[in-house]
Design a protein around this nucleic acid. Structure first.
Lengths: 110, 110
DNA sequence: CAGGATCCATGACGATACTG
DNA sequence: CAGTATCGTCATGGATCCTG
């Protein structure tokens, strides 16, 4: 069945989870709350600057939640908002599609 | 239910349909075969160079099909491959998600 | 520990002009 | 009509170093 699409919201949705890091972070947070440095280690190779920017982006778009813990040392925990967990069906479909396309689907054979 | 995700294929899927033009083109082609200049008019504001590049990208990733017609004047028709039409469930879920997030979801309130 | 500043590389996207 | 060529801009991501 063909639905009625809103181009803008589709593009917005893409922007919100596209890029090199955002899905990685989201997948990581789907496992549960994570501290900043846990995320830093989990997404190997990311620099603090980029991680911060990505997290702020995800915060702005309502996908992750930021919580400052009142512990001895500064600590911050990130977690998914409902909007974030609602992304699962989207990712499921994407995953399914990729699996179906299989090996004849690969970028930059150029 | 949480599925097992493959990060790389998720990112690949995103890359394949992300950007300013690709979804527009795909949505247009979901209506049926289109000639080059039809696409050019449908995606208002695009320049030939960019449209070509986007179409080639979509061809490379197996999403669109390019067919040269043997008419008096040079004519080319583009259409979706099965892989292309298979994107519908993905877009449906994205659309649904965007709708649920509603107004409190907007980029760059910064 | 969490986050910021600065500088830099690259690729996406754009404008204009031109051609088989 | 369906492309190409050339040039330019800007956002994303990266490296390194610094700080409340």
């Amino acid at each position: 069945m063909v639905e009625k699409y809103n181009l803008e919201s589709l593009q917005l949705t893409m922007r919100v989870i596209a890029g090199k890091w955002k899905i990685q972070i989201i997948l990581e947070l789907m496992k549960g709350k994570k501290r900043f440095n846990e995320l830093e280690r989990a997404t190997s190779g990311i620099t603090p600057k980029v991680l911060i920017r990505e997290l702020k982006d995800l915060e702005k778009t309502g996908i992750v939640n930021r919580e400052v813990l009142k512990t001895a040392l500064p600590a911050v925990e990130y977690s998914l908002t409902p909007a974030g967990t609602n992304l699962q069906p989207v990712l499921n479909k994407m995953q399914k599609w990729a699996k179906i396309q299989g090996q004849f689907f690969h970028l930059k054979g150029s």
